[in-house]
């Protein structure tokens, strides 16, 4: 079949990067970065997700349709999170007439 077969070396490098990122995120958790500790932790998590998706899940060899479906999923997840947080963070910002 005419599919891409990555070398074991590629997978070993990605795996090593994932382990390093896990150690880094654990180590940095003990440093007081204030509100940025969430940002750093999630940034590292997103990098790890991209490594797993692009290399282990072969997204970098995938069809355009699969990539479109994935982008669509991230967009809907964004709508779910943004809309709900907008609601929760602004509740009580305006008075409710009649209450």
């Amino acid at each position: 079949m005419s599919e891409h077969i990555d070398s074991v070396k590629t997978y070993v490098l990605v795996f090593a990067a994932l382990i390093c990122a896990t150690l880094a995120t654990t180590a940095v958790a003990f440093v007081d970065l204030g509100p940025f500790s969430v940002v750093v932790a999630l940034a590292i998590a997103v990098c790890k997700m991209l490594l797993v998706a692009l290399f282990f899940m072969h997204v970098r060899h995938s069809t355009k349709l699969t990539r479109l479906v994935l982008l669509g999923a991230l967009m809907w997840l964004g709508i779910l999170i943004l809309m709900t947080l907008t609601d929760f963070s602004t509740r009580g910002a305006l008075g409710v007439p009649g209450r």
Binding site: T25, V31, M49, V52, A53
Partner: peptide, 16 residues
């Protein structure tokens, strides 16, 4: 990938 997000959110972000 789900665990990659669960681990920092549950265990790490308030550790400091």
């Amino acid at each position: 990938i789900i665990w990659i997000f669960l681990f920092p959110l549950l265990y790490l972000i308030d550790r400091h």
